[in-house]
């Protein structure tokens, strides 16, 4: 059976820069101070007609570059396209961050001498490799809402429904309907191949 590929999409025409998604994420996963898996950014600030806001996190790229460069091979891509990693394997080298065009991987300073700890990033609320919904999984990776059949918390909380999540086809159908209704398309890149304009 062919699985759908899970994707995020933030509709720039609807995003009002309320930061609700990143706060919902930090609260739901009880993230340490200094880590924000999701961030709202405003591009072309102050330039009339060009300014827009969007919410960025891990884009769960097809052929994710982080997975390609990891020296300890701690990444794995689920059949539904969600890109996850094993924090017990991760050595905190930072290579995934250099490969990522979105700045998604983050490193808490938890070791002695300010050594980088294991990488942390958006899991699309799908937890990690540990036993689903176990205490350990929750502690290391946060909630596993996907396993419970729930929508990732950022998209669920989005007041204007700018942030969409789901299988790529449904997302593009919704977005296409919105664009045809307002007759104006997107500005920002989705997926690393477009971000690097290959």
């Amino acid at each position: 059976m062919e699985y759908a590929r899970m994707k995020f999409y933030c509709d720039e025409a609807r995003c009002i820069e309320c930061d609700g998604c990143s706060i919902a994420c930090a609260e739901a996963h009880e993230l340490p101070v200094g880590i924000s898996r999701r961030k709202v950014v405003t591009i072309n600030e102050g330039i009339p007609g060009k300014e827009f806001s969007t919410s960025i996190a891990c884009m769960h790229c097809t052929d994710a570059p982080c997975e390609q460069v990891c020296p300890v091979d701690c990444f794995y891509i689920r059949e539904d396209g969600i890109v996850l990693h094993d924090k017990d394997k991760c050595i905190g080298c930072g290579y995934c961050l250099y490969a990522c065009p979105f700045g998604a991987p983050q490193f808490p300073r938890d070791g002695a001498f300010g050594a980088k700890g294991a990488m942390d990033k958006c899991t699309m609320c799908a937890g990690g490799p540990l036993e689903t919904n176990s205490k350990e999984e929750r502690h290391l990776y946060g909630q596993n809402r996907i396993a419970e059949g729930k929508v990732p918390v950022c998209a669920a909380m989005c007041a204007t429904k700018a942030l969409l999540v789901g299988d790529a086809e449904s997302i593009s159908n919704i977005y296409r309907a919105r664009v045809s209704a307002r007759g104006k398309g997107a500005n920002s890149p989705y997926g690393w191949d477009r971000a690097y304009t290959k």
């Binding site: 405003t42 920002s188 304009t197």
Partner: peptide, 18 residues
Amino acid sequence: RIPNILSYGQEQSLKLGA
């Protein structure tokens, strides 16, 4: 984070990430 992201106004970048 914005200036670091290539396609948000960094077209002249060296494409070092790729």
